[in-house]
Amino acid sequence: MQAILASLISFLPRAIMQGTPLLYGATGEIITEKSGHLNLGIPGIMYVGGISGAAGAFLYEHSVDVMNPALAILIPLSCALVGSLLMGLIYSFLTVTLRANQNVTGLALTTFGIGIGNFFGGTLAKLSGTGETSLSLPQTKILFKTSLPFAADLGWFGSVFLSHGFLVYLAVVIALIAAFVLGRTRVGLQLRAVGENPATADAAGVNVNRYKYVATCIGSMIAGLGGLYYVVDYMGVWANDGFGDRGWLAIALVIFAVWRPHVGILGSYLFGGLYILYTVINIGVAEQELFKMLPYVVTIIVLVVTSIREKRESQPPASLGLAYFREER
């Protein structure tokens, strides 16, 4: 009994750590999809968020002897935001202004973003002339991982809930704010109208394109933070392709959470837990791979069940994936 509890206490924080990048990605994608844009570029955007943050942190670590903690946090943070914002701008320019096919644009963006991540991740250390061979950020990681000083004194509660760096909590806060904005504010109402029926929103005086741009860009920036978290907090070093398929998992999470950011919070920890469940269950290496499949299977089940039940509130935004052209009414 004691042993099970102990392993649970060690498992939960790790599930939260695994879930956090997914939560960022899913929250960003939900906001984007609510504007009617299926952004399949999210995996690439998360890579870019990660590498921009890592690059900022790396260059700062090597440019000063003693780091200013505030700057050491702010520089990677703002680099990640700017990097993913640029990605969001590419996507929205192509799909909103030029009305390009969303799937093709998104997939190209993912190729591009992963390329950027791996390229700079693999070469920046070499190019920087610091003598390093990998993009490792030991000091930045310590800062990002700083948790509340009294967390350790609070026993299991502290280690499960309070032992994380601030980005873990920021993810929850952003998801809650997103849920609030989407559900309880005029901006949220209008954003949802744009994703459901842009022609109606347009006729009601909502600036459809502006909403699409802003939602996509904010969504991208939030997703980018997921990449940042993974590199500077979870890993502390850039590894090419290290982020893996977490970006796609984040898109799966959107469906699992039926487009509700607050459901995404628990969903992300569940997915995170499923992702590493094999580590606590005594099974072979091979079976671990089957366990990693679980989040996707669960997502498909949710997708199928919601489509069969035909509950209107659980459907994807009605105009998801369609370009809006006013004069085509």
Binding site: L189, A193, T200, R312
Partner: peptide
């Protein structure tokens, strides 16, 4: 009609009002 199907009557009525 120009209405958003998944919205309530009220939500549709105030849509776009600033």
């Amino acid at each position: 009609f120009k209405l958003v199907d998944v919205f309530t009557a009220t939500e549709n009525i105030i849509l776009g009002l600033k």
